[in-house]
Write a protein that binds this DNA or RNA. Structure first.
Lengths: 200, 200
DNA sequence: ATCCGGTTTAACCAAATGGTTAATATTGCA
DNA sequence: TGCAATATTAACCATTTGGTTAAACCGGAT
């Protein structure tokens, strides 16, 4: 059952752990090597530089954060189900790696130009969602609201618990498991919260 | 008009800039010294170590993020005005230093224990708000909603634009000024969004 | 003027860190 | 088997970086 992962995969996994834990600047190549159980020189054999290794990691992470998520929007051409699917999908993915959103936000802040490409991928899905909002409004299903603002609000309600996780854990005395339960609960309550606000 | 700031103040200002820009790990003492226009050794004269300098900076920043903000909750014993005041107050403060929330979130993630004190300061104000919610519910003004969850949602809608600022700027092509306008607009729309959702 | 405490600087240091090299081990294949 | 290509390692290197030291500077009290 212990699948022999290729060395490159092991490196990427280890690097992801370390980068997420320490950030690009704080991560040490030696630590990645140790985490992967290999020699440091082997890192540079597979990834010429720290920067390149980071890009390799960030690519996959951004993909996970932005890429597939938008797709869940496409599964419905009705706004409310789309919102429900989107929120639940996002929670399901992020609950596996709760530190991912902060990692992404952080690195995007560090190097907005260089990493911009990675978030452009969801462009069509995003405009698809905006259209969905406009149509729903045209049909009189929802009140008049700036679609982009609605999208920001939806993202906010999804992302924030993960960003504020350390604070929430401290304030509410959440264990990892309790935090998990809170997120699962929000899979239901967040769409309800949103829809109550925009339903006309 | 050019107030002669004390050297320590100049250092703290410069350090704040650099730490917020690069994070604790990415910040360089030399860069702080340059930014403050002083010799690097002088940094260690005023702050023995990088860690100590960081704490000095973080103290003031966390104060700004957590300290006075909660107080705005106390200004009203009605829920809806309290929400309006809180949101507007938060936006006003953060718009001056849009990168602060991410900086704080990031550091809270790095060292959750060390920062517990700062959060605890707002404890009474927070429980005061929770009571406000319960009372409003008892009076039949709002629907049945977990007060803590409502608070998380309010914070989410306030904080997230600042966390996602680089992404929003890229996606929407916002300039600094345009971002500012968006935030100012949200001072009105966010409370509306919330109240629409919870009003019974 | 001179002495003295606090302030500021240039030069320096040891450790850490990203990256390289050359040699060794391993694998796939003729 | 033997050989060439690939994978892996130990030792090394140059630079960066946080931090130190000793000397110079400077304003005020004597």
């Amino acid at each position: 059952m212990v699948r022999e992962a290729t060395t490159e995969q092991r490196i990427l996994e280890a690097a992801k752990k370390v980068f997420i834990r320490k950030g690009m600047a704080g991560a040490r190549m030696q630590e990645v090597a140790d985490e992967a159980g290999i020699n440091k020189a082997l890192l540079h054999y597979y990834f010429r530089s720290k920067e390149q290794l980071f890009v390799g990691v960030f690519k996959g992470s951004a993909e996970k954060q932005f890429g597939c998520i938008w797709d869940s929007l496409k599964q419905s051409d009705m706004l409310f189900p789309a919102i429900e699917t989107f929120v639940a999908g996002y929670m399901d993915r992020m609950i596996e790696e709760p530190q991912l959103p902060l990692f992404i936000a952080n690195e995007m802040n560090r190097d907005p130009e260089g990493l911009a490409d990675f978030i452009d991928r969801g462009k069509e899905s995003r405009s698809g969602f905006l259209r969905l909002v406009e149509e729903a409004h045209a049909r009189g299903e929802i009140i008049d609201i700036d679609p982009r603002e609605l999208l920001v609000n939806i993202m906010a309600l999804c992302v924030h618990p993960f960003i504020a996780r350390p604070m929430l854990k401290h304030i509410h005395g959440f264990s990892d498991e309790a935090f998990r339960r809170m997120i699962l609960k929000r899979k239901k309550t967040v769409p309800e919260f949103i829809i109550r606000s925009i339903r006309s």
